[in-house]
Structure formats: structure tokens, C-alpha cells
Amino acid sequence: MAVASTVVYEYLRGKKKFPHVWCPGCGIGIIMGALLRAMADLEIKKGDVAMISGIGCTGRMPVYCDFHTLHTTHGRAIAFATGIKLSKPDLKVVAIVGDGDGLAIGGNHFIHAARRNIDITTILVNNKIYGMTGGQYSPTTPTGKFATTAPYGNLEHPFDAYLLAKGAGANFFARSSVYHATQLQVLIKKALLKKGFSVVEAMSNCHTLYGRLNKEGSAVQMINWFKDHAVNVNIAKKKTPEELEDKFITGVLWEDNRPEYSEQYEALIDRLGGRKKEEKPEAEVVKQ
């Protein structure tokens, strides 16, 4: 880790963008670090990456990363990313979404990008709450947990993003947490290499809001909770549902090899002979 830690500077936008907006102890920085190290491991060039985010704490990540970065509207990162990937299929497209951003307001785009199986690597930062707006319950807030809009405990049932992604047709789903930074890095690397719609769910801590409202303690205590409650997918197979009740499963949970959308579309262009017609008439350049 000590060696790897300097690698991230290569991918960051330099000192003038720091300090970042996240609370001290927030897990998003760990996730960003894991993503950048995964990029470094794969020797991906900065100019070949488009990073698109929505709104929320997670949505702020692209400010710090030295790629083509687009901070879009709430919930729509994956839809913007779809347009980018389809029109520039050579780019490595990464969508950064939160649990409210990606699964509530952006749930429809998540489902349909998975169904289309377009080659976007989605990092789903799941801290089980809306952080930026001050602690409202999200689609991943467990039943009974407290939020500012669930003052008597959450009556709703949370999403399992794994079942959602798998059911909708994604090619890859993995989960890890901010405690498991190295595993997270490895999983993101796998997701980046995987053709098709790939999702890495990174369980993160919001001690400022979720932790405080649910008496789960400081950042350290919450990150320790991830350590104590993570079960690797291979071990989980041998456990009973009762044994897994308050646990979360990590590792590669789902992998498939369905054809990828933008590759299919490029093949269609070739089949129709569209490639040769790409040259455009001489354009008048706008005078400034």
C-alpha cells in the first residue's frame, strides 16, 4: 500500500482542488483511491477515461480526478455515460453513483444500462443514506433504521443492488467495503476489464449522519463494522441464511458474458457500410 499510495497523485487534479468537500473520515476518499489505483494497475491513460457522476456526496468525486469529467444532474450519470460511450466507444467510461442517486432517482437508468449491457463501469457508493441533503432514508437504508425522514424507523424495504443488476442483465457485479480497500481495488480492476455493464458496490460509512442517527459510532467504529460483518462470497456459499442474517457478502457475486451494446452497434455500422461515409463536408469555422 505504501508504494501504491503515491500512484494516485498521477491521477489527481493537483493541490488546488483540495481540501475535498467530504467529512473527515468519510469512506468516499478510500473508494476514489481504490479506483485510481485500479486504473494505475491497468496502466489506463487519463485521456482515455470519461468519469461521469450525479448529485450527492459521491457526485463530487470527478472534481478531483484528472480525466474527462462530467458532474451531471441527480440520478442521470448512467444516462449521460450511455451517450458518451455510444458516441465514443473507445473511451473507458466510469459512472460514479450513490445509493439514492443511482438506485432511487436514477434507478431506471441503472436497470436499462444493465439490460442494454453497455460497457460502463459503475461504482455504486452505498452509505445507506442521503448525505448531502442531511440524512434522509435511501433505497438501501435497512428497515427499522433511523433517518431524518424516518424519525420512527424506516418502514420501507431496502434494495439489494446485486439482485437488481443481475436481474436486469449486467455482466458483472462485485461488492466490497471501505475497510477492504485492497479487495475493492482488485474488484474495480476486474470490473474495468470486464466488457459490458459492470457494477462494484462499495459499502461506505456516513458516520456524520447515518452513524449518528443510528448510534453506530465514529468513522473507525463504522469501518470496523464492515470488517466484522463482511463474508466472502465463497465462504457465504457454505453458510445458512440465519448465519448470514446481519452480514454482507463481498467478492464477485455475478459474472456473465452477454454481448456488449456499443460493440454490437459498431458491428451494425460495419454491416451497413456506414464506416466509409464518416468524412464530413468542409465546415466553416466560427470566427471568434
Binding site: 470519461a50 461521469i52 474527462h68 462530467l70 451531471t72 444532474t73 442521470r76 444516462a79 449521460f80 455515460a81 450511455t82 451517450g83 458518451i84 455510444l86 458516441s87 465514443k88 473511451l91 431506471n108 437508468h109 436497470i111 436499462h112
Partner: peptide, 16 residues
Amino acid sequence: EDEIGSIAAVIGASVA
């Protein structure tokens, strides 16, 4: 999947 996504994809493509 809807018109929100349509205009999002259009803007994404334009920026690209």
C-alpha cells in the same frame, strides 16, 4: 428508457 435519459444521452454525446 425515457425522455430524461434521452436528453442526458444527447448531452453526453455532445460533450464527447
